[in-house]
Design a protein around this nucleic acid. Sequence first.
RNA 1: GCCGACAUAGCUCAGGGGUAGAGCAACUGAUUCGUAAUCAGUAGGUCCUCGGUUCAAUUCCGAGUGUCGGCACCA
Length: 641
Amino acid sequence: MPAITLPDGSVRDFAAPLTGTALAAAIGPGLARAALAMKLDGKLVDLARDIDHDAAVTFVTRKDPEALELIRHDTAHVLAEAVQALFPGTQVTIGPSIENGFYYDFARNEPFTLEDLPTIEAKMREIVAANELFSREVWDRDDAIHFFQERGERYKAELIQDLPVSETITLYRQGDWIDLCRGPHMRGTADVGTGFKLTKVAGAYWRGDHRNAMLSRIYGTAWRDQKELDAYLHQQEEAERRDHRRIGREMDLFHLQSEAQGSVFWHPKGWRLYRTVEDYIRRRQNAAGYDEVRTPQLVDRSLWEASGHWEKFRHHMFIATVEEEPDVTLALKPMNCPCHVQIFNHGMRSYRELPLRMAEFGSCHRYEPSGALHGIMRVRAFTQDDAHIFCTEEQIGPETVRFVKLLSSIYQDLGFPDFRVKFADRPDVRAGSDADWDRAERALHEACATAGVAYTENPGEGAFYGPKLEFVLRDAIGRDWQCGTLQVDYVLPERLDAEYVGEDGARHRPVMLHRAILGSFERFLGILIEQYAGRFPLWLAPVQVVVASIVSDANDYAEDVAKRFRAAGLSVTTDLRNEKINAKVREHSLAHVPVIAVVGRREAEERRVSLRRLGVERQEVLGLEETVTLLASEARAPDLL
RNA sequence: GCCGACAUAGCUCAGGGGUAGAGCAACUGAUUCGUAAUCAGUAGGUCCUCGGUUCAAUUCCGAGUGUCGGCACCA
């Protein structure tokens, strides 16, 4: 006879097994109304499940974090029912809850379009209003397979076939509609509520494999109520406003055009931003003991064959030939590493030179599939803040520690204090022996331990030549971006025959650590633009100050002020147009200029300036020389403070 | 690469089988003004490209290209 422990520690004894619904009712009518599901000994299950043994039970109500997942999953089921009601012959496949919502993949000859969504959504609301109750049924495996095959649901049949034999096959019924599902579900479709919306349609491969059929996916978002939904939709609009493509255009930073697909045209302001970041990274790396180099763009095929890129990477490389030399095949470098090894190999290296940290702002080209291109974030021509550390196996640990320290400090300076680390180990397709991989993975694990780096596993995602650490930034609106990387490579030094003379006078292979902090400048600048929504801190802002005159009598003085600012190293423009100061302030505020220096007759007479900071209405009037000193110091890069 | 949507002025967008429309921006003139839009005027277009249907296509149809949203890809 079940003795049930509740979250407050109290224990209730019951004479016979009872359902969660009954238990909730026994506790109180308020709970009976609010309970959507329960946690039975920590496992989330339907309220209708029997509790037949001594157990700990916690009820899940709408307020609980688990509720969102239940709501989203149930909404996906409602979507599937609606679609099958409206479009007979459509097969169902899978429909999980995801971050912020859910999706459902359907198999249908004619894919769904955006125009179908309002109809489907209306049907969904009918189903929700009807409050069809969810009921769970345990089926015999073969019966279930047979059942779905009979109904022409071959994807569902395939899913069951692939389930382990030990798995209990459960089907959930809601009204007349039935689906294979692990559960749990809420009480009925009314529990979904009204806070959902279908958002987009997309193609998606069955089981995520591009060799399989393409299914028609419908995405939706679902929340506890209309208010939460509205808040989410509002947040989406905010994210759109920060889109780097929009801000890039509005702030005149860069553009893209089809004649150079996947390559960025940097405009003066964008290039200033780019150089600010590049100069900063260069200073940091110089200070951290890196030597900067520059290597060729076009390199003969033979080097790529030797490095292994020709075999593994050729389809992502741009190949160049000249008519005059038909036997020569060159390729634009997709990575810098083989070239760096050429510099390492030039002359005899001694163990005394290790660790040798070779950095390059390496301009690379990779052929990316057209569908992968995205603004300046995913391009075909990009520049890495790349470096290779040639070292001994013993030096992997200390070098990892140094690198992680440098990287965290740089992320901090650039406005990303929050990042995490993933450990990516050997992929299926790889170069090098298993023994090499064992050594490399072990070395990196040990290095993490030494560096005190906590990481999560990312199995099978290593580079083809070695395992890697991936450094993932968290941005201002909670999105993750993998930027930094540290890869241990025993393979390339071997393939390209890199050697140094050891203490013992014999020749040894160095280990190579491939590492980047930003990854690609193009992508990182895209992230940076979205992080700050174009409102950069003073040191990064492409235009730091606009000197705006109020009357034309103050124009000469405004020019003077700008000249003084410029001499102090600030990026300044003047606005002497015949416009009202209101208009000027508005325009430059919309353009995210951090400081507007307003000068009128008064300032000109007194050699002062009125400073207005972006987003701040209050002004401060200061002497010119004082202002120059103040702004110059505020605009200093964090490493120069 | 795959599925879908979209492509009209510098930008945001409307329109529609028969001289192409707005707002903002640009340009010209007037205005000299104190911290988020001064007024008036002018100019601006291969309606993505190529083909088809039609007396007539920017509009309808087809193909291509590009962009966007996903999927796959990101070594």
